[in-house]
């Protein structure tokens, strides 16, 4: 605390602060206050989602607005889950399937490719890696019309395959894994394993995988969140089916002549909770992943 109070008297603390980088300077009360306001701004919509999800219709027709959770959460939930035209439970299951399969696949294929690019020597590896990086800049949403036609030819539109297949390996994942492996897996270790007669896959399983566990956690969390939250493509390919993903199901809840917010937000809240839990548990990893990505790019 003394550091904070010392900061208050600027003139006197100056010599002590001379030349200190911001990140070495203890935050003052003002900084904490502003950060608290920022946090409120970030968290309030989530909190209010819960407030409405636990309330009756009246809560939305109140001034000043309701800010205390009600006791109708179970009632609203039951309503969401028992709707006749939106199969919300099934859509949640679908979201779990899609996000889990995509995440597992991204982790496997991206770490494999990342390992090859980082530690194996083969003709054209530099050029191919450059290509991977370049694909990062292509906004592939723009091919969405043709993607729909391609999926139609494959007969996949309306099935989860159409949502899963395009995401199974990502350029970002390959790039991220390669960087991490270059920096953390020592060449000598790979070499000595070779001398001992270990095959490439064995080195991957016994040396690379254990070393890159932190990176797998980061990439896994980021992929899961992004896949779970995806809306545009699932909406296009799964609309008209009875069993879309939860994001599409929520948008179905929200359409019609009259939006019943307590119901929509109860559904939205249920679909948000898994991500909040992940952020709570893996927050450190997610923060690190984003920050590392920034420095490298």
């Amino acid at each position: 605390m003394s550091a904070i109070t010392a900061l208050g008297k600027r003139g006197r603390s100056r010599p002590a602060l001379l030349g200190r980088a911001p990140q070495d300077t203890p935050a003052g009360v003002g900084t904490y206050l502003l950060l608290a306001v920022t946090f409120l701004f970030a968290a309030f919509p989530l909190y209010w989602m819960f407030v409405i999800a636990t309330s009756t219709d009246e809560a939305l027709a109140k001034l000043p607005p309701a800010v205390i959770p009600g006791d109708q959460f179970l009632v609203n939930l039951r309503e969401v889950f028992s709707l006749q035209d939106v199969y919300f439970a099934a859509s949640l299951v679908n979201s779990v399937i899609v996000a889990t399969v995509v995440t597992a696949s991204v982790l496997f294929f991206c770490s494999l490719a990342g390992f090859a690019f980082a530690k194996l020597r083969f003709k054209g590896s530099r050029g191919l890696m450059l290509f991977v990086v370049l694909t990062l800049t292509v906004p592939n949403q723009l091919g969405i019309v043709a993607l729909y036609i391609v999926m139609g030819k494959l007969g996949w539109n309306g099935t989860l395959l159409a949502v899963i297949a395009p995401g199974l390996v990502t350029a970002f994942g390959v790039f991220y894994m390669r960087q991490f492996i270059v920096n953390t897996v020592p060449d000598e270790l790979v070499e000595s394993a070779r001398v001992d007669g270990a095959s490439t896959m064995r080195i991957y399983a016994n040396i690379v995988l254990p070393t890159i566990r932190p990176a797998l956690a980061v990439l896994g969390l980021l992929t899961f969140v992004a896949t779970w939250n995806d809306f545009q493509w699932p909406l296009i390919t799964l609309s008209g089916t009875d069993f879309p993903t939860s994001m599409v199901a929520i948008s179905d809840l929200a359409s019609g002549n009259y939006v019943i917010y307590r119901r929509v937000l109860a559904g939205a809240f249920i679909a948000t909770v898994p991500l909040l839990v992940m952020l709570f548990i893996g927050g450190r990893q997610i923060v690190r992943g984003i920050m590392e990505g920034a420095v490298k790019s």
């Binding site: 990140q23 900084t31 919509p45 939205a268 909040l276 927050g283 923060v287 984003i290």
Partner: peptide
């Protein structure tokens, strides 16, 4: 970018909107 108490938690807090599905927050 200061020396903060509970540094990680401030950063995690900043990511609350990032992990929230846009579908959900847009309805709010």
């Amino acid at each position: 970018n200061r020396k903060l108490r509970a540094q990680t938690w401030w950063r995690v807090g900043a990511l609350l909107p990032y992990v929230t599905p846009i579908v959900a927050s847009t309805m709010v």
